[in-house]
Design a protein around this nucleic acid. Structure first.
Lengths: 218, 218, 218, 218
DNA sequence: CATGAATGAGGCTTCATTCAT
DNA sequence: CATGAATGAAGCCTCATTCAT
């Protein structure tokens, strides 16, 4: 699974070698720490161990570099295959998907990334649209299918699946932000992340499960 | 009407008269629309109907102006008294609090404010700490008390009240962002906001209510 | 005669006061000496006695500043009314027009301007078109009328008036360049400019006059 | 083929092989199209089918490359021998020289070259001096001799030969610029070039010929 | 000979901040 | 109190030039 996210129009050149990757790595760090505007190309170049001008050998502008970073992060996000044994129930499927998602976005390197996404992505309609297509139309669709099946079988309460996906993701996304450094709720940083996702999953399943439902297997 | 939020350390002067308020209003708009960096003092001054230099008669710097705006928004948030008839149950109390919160932060003028808060507040530790004290220690504490009582009485499931507050607020906050223009999920903009908070409240209560509980009143 | 050359779309702001004029003056000097690219805004600002940023209070970009200079020079060129006693013949009218033109473009401050016009104007189609409209459609038309009348009356030979204007102007323009410092023909710098225009006029009239023509006045 | 124009001081190396010539060809094109500053070594290298670094194997700097181009063009200009049957009169000699000159500088590849010469040559005193020596001291001298003979024989009016050369050349040079694309007088582009030089020659001869002169052959 | 990745000085431009009026 | 012209530091970007391969 190679995941070349924007295969239709890869505007940023991908010259051979490691340089572009090094630059994207450095840029991810600096963007995450400082935000798009406050990030200085000087610092990105320094962290990548190259000079400022080198960036422009691979990316046409600071904005294109940013796009490449977004693209790479999204690519990684899409590679998260969530594979595993066939779940016995939709509850288990949902839980597994939420945990996989949590495990991924909880990676330290995405620590400040949520801020970027929230604050900067809306300024790039092209990327926003792409992000919607790539992540939502795939990731959300998968969750939506799970919930729809659960509702159909009676395992879940009668909820609008699309909304339920938003609810589940709200919990995961917001708490991922709160556990990051410099978030608005620093108290969450000291929480055990495992217990946190446990509680989140428990909360979501409690909200969705149909109390009157009994597994047909039993 | 009190609400002098950071009374203990009023670094920004609050001269009498309407000027400062006009400036804060204009600044709120521009910050919300453009973000902190992209907001130009020129535009803020223009919208307030004054010259750029005038800003410096009331605020020492752009950053201080930003702090004043944050302070004002927080003050407004705190004024939201959520008063009303005594609720008959903790479920009703929670629902009422969530709806009041939704009604407030859903105001059009806070449309882009969430982005600002997420992106800029972490750069101002002083404000961050104050925000935690003022909003969390008050607003969240109120919710926490409701949930704690519900858990104690058996109306709610056995959840850690503190965490449950975070869950409820995650739903409200995240969806408030999504219904704003330029969010990452533009589809939410066409949703009826009333139905949205209905579904959110329904979801939260379904997650918290104890299925085995029967109101003592019955 | 006020001469507001580009009255239809004055893109460059004309704030009150002397500043814009000072800047245009300084820019004319530096552009003439160095050319558009080699001219540094730093130097223009220094010569105008202001800081670099001040330029941007009045002109949106280096290019707009250049346009303003062109516009000003053209405006001055158009103000050259060539008024005087009614000429007794078309020969005299032509001579007078050529001398007036020479007197104007020979001003020391336009010393390097020809280079600019030749080398830089073609990069600005908008200005090029405007220059054509303003200078050619007016200045050339006047000359053309003179020559056409002269041809009609038999005072001039049968030449295409439009071409003849180009010939007369070629002589004036090219020699004006050659008498400027740093031209390709430095030898012309030591020539007496009065004798030069005398010879040019003599040459042009010799080429145009009809040898068989005798003034009807005689 | 000779024509090593600046043999006395060949600052730019002329290695054997085709490479340098290819580069000069490509450079002539790019310089003509874009001007000296706007010409990018990247583009010159690309058009020559080599890498950017290769340029520096043959030329020490962009400026030296420019000098080599100038030198080559001048060399070509000097090779223009203007040979032909012995003219029967100085008028015919002058006409033939002007037409030969027109035919040469009218070549499409020199289309933008006039701009370059005017704008850039003055920045290179060494080249300027050389150009004067090579072109003026030869080309102009030849014309000057023709005119001087014509004046002496009474075929031409009493004009200063040196000035007359400048007049004739003004006409040719200026109109060559006007017929090029992007000139200040685009209307000339649609003119038939043959008719144009016909008219120019006619104009010059009309200015120079002595009306009272009758060929001794008659 | 040739490559092309890398450099880094230098330019244009922005805009928060100052200050004379 | 208020103005708005002026400042100048700082950032993005360009591109001639270098050099290891």
């Amino acid at each position: 699974m190679s995941a070349e996210p924007i295969a239709h129009d890869p505007k940023w050149r991908r010259l051979p070698g490691e340089r572009p990757h090094q630059l994207i790595e450095a840029a991810l760090d600096v963007f995450s720490e400082r935000g798009f505007n406050a990030a200085k190309l000087d610092e990105i170049a320094r962290r990548a161990g190259v000079s400022k001008g080198t960036i422009y050998l691979y990316f046409d502008s600071k904005e294109e570099l940013f796009k490449a970073v977004v693209n790479d992060v999204i690519a990684a996000q899409l590679r998260e295959a969530h594979q595993g044994p066939t779940p016995k129930s939709e509850s288990e499927a949902l839980e597994r998907a939420m945990r996989a998602n949590w495990a991924f976005i909880t990676l330290p390197r995405f620590d400040g990334w949520f801020r970027i996404l929230i604050a900067e992505l809306p300024k790039h309609p092209e990327l926003l649209a792409f992000y919607n297509r790539a992540v939502i139309d795939r990731g959300w669709a998968k969750l939506e299918a799970i919930i729809a099946r659960g509702v159909a079988s009676g395992e879940f309460r009668r909820v609008e699946p699309r909304l339920a996906v938003g609810f589940a993701n709200s919990l995961v996304i917001m708490h991922r932000h709160w556990v990051s450094a410099n978030s608005i709720r620093p108290e969450y940083q000291s929480r055990d992340r495992q217990q946190l996702i446990d509680a989140i999953v428990d909360f979501a399943l409690a909200a969705l499960r149909n109390p009157a439902f009994h597994s047909p297997a039993q």
